[in-house]
Structures are given as structure tokens and as C-alpha cells.
């Protein structure tokens, strides 16, 4: 299972980096979304896979069979944060598109004021 997860995470990172390196702003934003998904999967894997009972000490659940609740709490927090940042980024990209009339990151170079 860990091997499979490693491949999934690796693929997510690969796709994210490919998208972030492209020129279109929208693709870049999708890339950052994929990047954070990859990171969340990594937390899940790093917290240890295999124990599947919910992390509540009920009947028939022992310390060893219950899942680690901490990675889940971390992922939830990270998801909420990346939701907020992505939403902000989208709004900004839209406004920038209206203002600068382009979504091509190549055309957003700063002009050099210095001689």
C-alpha cells in the first residue's frame, strides 16, 4: 500500500510541477491545487496506513487497530487553508486578467525602471 501511495503522490507532484511551469495562469492555479493534494496524501501516508478503525475508543477498538487521528486533523486544517488560498488566488487571477488583459505569465514580467 505504501508503494502504491508513493507512486500516487509522486504522480501528483509531477503533474503539479508540470502545470506550475506552464504559462497559463489558470493551469498554474490548478497545479498549486494538485501540489497541496499531493502534500495531504503524503501526510496520510506518513501517519501510517493500515489501521482502519475510527479513532474513538468504542467496543472492539484497541489502541493498535485504530487510525492515528492527528494526520487527519492536520489534513483537514491544510485542506481548509489551501481552499482559502486557492479561492483567493482564483479571484486575484480573474481581476488581474481584467486589468492586465492577459493570463500569460510571460507577459507579466516587471519592467526595469533602472537604466
Amino acid at each position: 500500500m505504501e508503494i502504491l501511495m508513493a507512486f500516487v503522490i509522486g504522480f501528483l507532484f509531477f503533474a503539479a510541477i508540470y502545470l506550475i511551469l506552464s504559462k497559463s495562469l489558470l493551469r498554474i492555479i490548478i497545479g498549486t491545487g494538485l501540489l497541496s493534494h499531493g502534500a495531504h496524501m503524503l501526510i496520510l501516508t506518513m501517519g501510517g496506513l493500515g489501521s482502519d478503525a475510527p479513532p474513538v475508543l468504542a467496543d472492539g477498538v484497541s489502541n493498535s487497530s485504530m487510525a492515528d487521528p492527528l494526520p487527519q486533523a492536520l489534513i483537514l486544517t491544510a485542506i481548509v487553508i489551501s481552499f482559502g488560498v486557492t479561492a483567493f488566488f482564483l479571484v486575484l487571477a480573474y481581476r488581474a486578467y481584467q486589468e492586465l488583459k492577459t493570463d500569460n505569465i510571460d507577459e507579466m514580467r516587471g519592467e526595469e525602471h533602472d537604466e
Partner: peptide, 10 residues
């Protein structure tokens, strides 16, 4: 609130 602000502004 936040979701609606975002959706309204886009």
C-alpha cells in the same frame, strides 16, 4: 460568508 464573498466577487 467567505464562500459567498468569493463567489460574488467572481
Amino acid at each position: 460568508g467567505v464562500t459567498m464573498i468569493i463567489i460574488q466577487s467572481i
